[in-house]
Nucleic acid binder design. Structure first.
Lengths: 144, 144
DNA sequence: GTGGCTGCAAATGGTTTGCACGACC
DNA sequence: GGTCGTGCAAACCATTTGCAGCCAC
């Protein structure tokens, strides 16, 4: 997904709800898109203040827009253990997370067998499955 | 696991670390043991104030002991989405969670196929697996 | 008796909210 | 021009911490 796609999706989402397309929304989304790592609200705010000294974005705006972007499905959040919520661009490819407990590295993966097994479980308990999260915690190769 | 086992485990954990066995620790652990549902800190505190009007337990003590009990492995915590941490007795039987998004009901389950598949994934990414959480979100039979 | 434990209240810190001003459509 | 969005600061709320007295060992 290119940056143009990402901004395009934002424009569509905004138009659909008769909301405004603002520089701040674009900047926040761009920051998440450009980051290799998952970011929390404060990290996003810090990146914005550093790279945009003249055009500042308030922390409240960051929080408001993270909620907005998540609700519209443009970004995804993941909250590990008792830590802060971290955000990533929604590539519309579902995946789960493998987390290193030493360095905090997050690796994304997808396993079809597990996805299928989950459906079986849900059926067994008569649940209608909407979503799921799976986090594997361990120590990555570098940190062992 | 009987209540005697639970209290026995607490006595052992406390003795091992040369700490004190207090009424409050026992009460908090008992509350979690007696509850069918997962409880958060505030719910535990409320239950204690209702059932023990004379012998009151401060909210700070609840938090301090929840951390203590979790660290010693007597209880487990699960934090759903962006909500509060909820606690349950550690039965030493690993399980995952199926959560109803309407009524909040939590069902525990265990699936050996998924456990195995997780090991495969960890190996593939050269992670040493320590633990994992899996939460399936959906709508339970009653709420559909 | 001593060191951990408790209750209380104050502090903390991430997140939310009220409000007046500014910007998008 | 009207409405939504923003920045700022204050409020919020779950959790943590400092401290003086208390209690288990």
């Amino acid at each position: 997904m290119t940056k143009q796609d990402v901004f395009g999706n934002l424009k569509i989402a905004v138009k659909e709800k008769a909301l405004k397309y603002t520089k701040q929304r674009e900047l926040i989304l761009e920051t998440i898109y450009n980051s290799k790592n998952h970011l929390n609200a404060e990290q996003i705010h810090k990146k914005l203040t550093i790279s945009n000294k003249d055009d500042k974005v308030g922390i409240a705006t960051v929080y408001r827009n993270l909620l907005f972007l998540e609700k519209t499905g443009l970004i995804l959040s993941i909250s590990l253990n008792n830590n802060l919520k971290q955000y990533e661009i929604n590539q519309h490819k579902h995946h789960d997370h493998l987390v290193c407990m030493r360095c905090g590295k997050i690796v994304e993966f997808i396993n079809q067998n597990i996805e299928q097994e989950q459906e079986t479980i849900a059926k067994e308990f008569k649940f209608k499955l909407l979503s799921h999260t799976m986090h594997l915690y361990g120590v990555c190769e570098n940190c062992q």
